[in-house]
Amino acid sequence: MLCEKCQKKDANVSVQTIINGITESHHLCSECAQQEGLFHSGFGLENLSMANNIGKTLFNFPYSKLGHAQSNSDALTGTRMTCPHCNQSLSDFKQTGLFGCPQCYESFRGMIREMLDQVQGDHLHRDSRRITQDKSDSSDSPIVIIEDKQEKSEQTAQEKLKAELQEMIKQENYEQAAIIRDRIKELEKEDQVDESE
């Protein structure tokens, strides 16, 4: 399948959006996806301590581009993704810095993952009690799914593990994901030690 935007390269990123309850799938090449900001959220980390700044930094999140709006049109106009449980949109969130309901995390799962990586440095909760519990109560399908099907040829061990980690999270195998994530952290620590010596 060709990329919807440039109509030249193969589409290897698929984006699913739900706008006012209507589901749409889009297929882009990785360059166009990057241009659309799907991989670069532009969160600033400067003002972490103030909760509301996260709402403000979220303003920079290119969620408007997840819809079918033209890439050069004004952000936010015409697109309004809402959580089906509380009817709040991400632009409501960016005003208050607060989600409308706990289920918003399911509704905006893809974007929240990326946001938490910026805000908390991670998006995978580690629970000292439930880490071995089964995953039967895992949630509904997320509203936004961004898949990168591109195969990278030269991957470091860390990159491989990170890809594996994403896969485990996608499969909702959180127990395995936590183990892999620990391994990545160990590798990162080793790297730091190597550098300092």
């Binding site: 909760a51 996260i54 929240i112 805000v119 998006h123 909760h125 959180y174």
Partner: peptide
């Protein structure tokens, strides 16, 4: 949520 843990109004 098994991925995000205890869900709070603010993501912080």
């Amino acid at each position: 949520d098994p991925e995000f843990g205890y869900l709070t109004a603010c993501p912080t």
